[in-house]
Amino acid sequence: MTALLSRHAACIYWMGRYIERAENLARILDVNETYSRDSRGGQNWRSIVELYNDKNQFDELYEDYDDKNVLSFYVLDSRNPSSLVSAVQTARENARTLRPLISTEMWVHMNVFSNWIRGTREEDLKEGRLSRLCMQVRQECQAHTGITEGTFYRDESWYFYQLGRMIERADQTTRLLDVKYHMLLPSLHDVGSALDVSQWNALLRSAAGYHAFRRVYPTGFAVPNVVAFLLFNDSFPRSVHASIGQFESQLTDLRQKFQLMGGADALGELYDVRTVLSESSVDAIMTRGLHEFLDWTQQRIISVGDKLSADFFS
């Protein structure tokens, strides 16, 4: 049996990450247009730039944080490596490198997806059309993961694909929580108001968690409940805990099944994060500072990625 090339392992991991990133970004843009309005009734587009820590890069390329600029930056602009167009292109370039490993159906879909998104124009971002665009991106990402699930040969590369998706998902959910929470701080006096409810509603919807949340908490939008749901819930696939748990079990399986020595450091780091996530109460976290906690979690996630990379990708 031939072992997976380190370079290919990195490519497939990043292909998974970029598709997951594109899906999350599409969710956030969509929900922002539909639900997120600040106290003056305007849509708050700046929060998205903050969410992704892209302020410096944005300021270099654009002036105002209006819908047109922010959407251009996040959908079309190939100068932004995280724009939808860039993320899908990067995923496609990785897929191109991986052609000898991935299924023809995965490749064909990736080509159709990337050819389509490259054809997106400014006018597709206008109100009323953005939502359709975001929905299609989300569906193409889901088609990609579905085709992959159904056709991709289950060797080591499958596990690296899953690792990439899960780590990206955990990271995206912490960012989502972080910025929304941050954004709400100045208006704490609004807690429980119609605006506040719509904000949390939007937050849950962007993570596709609204209905699942309702099953756990049939009434109300208590902030700690939403935070706890997105951080800890083990049955909700986009929660931080569930994503990290998936990552951990995939990595464990990968090492056992293919008798790999690498990955031990990443597992050690993960164990720390998961222990903290399992043992912390949401009240304690919010008292000490949700932002600080999320920041710590993001740092650990980055460190897990670095350790994985050091063991397998170089």
Binding site: T2, A3, L5, R7, F258, L260, G262
Partner: peptide, 9 residues
Amino acid sequence: FMKTIKGLI
């Protein structure tokens, strides 16, 4: 040798 996730092959 080639560099793989299993080391050099």
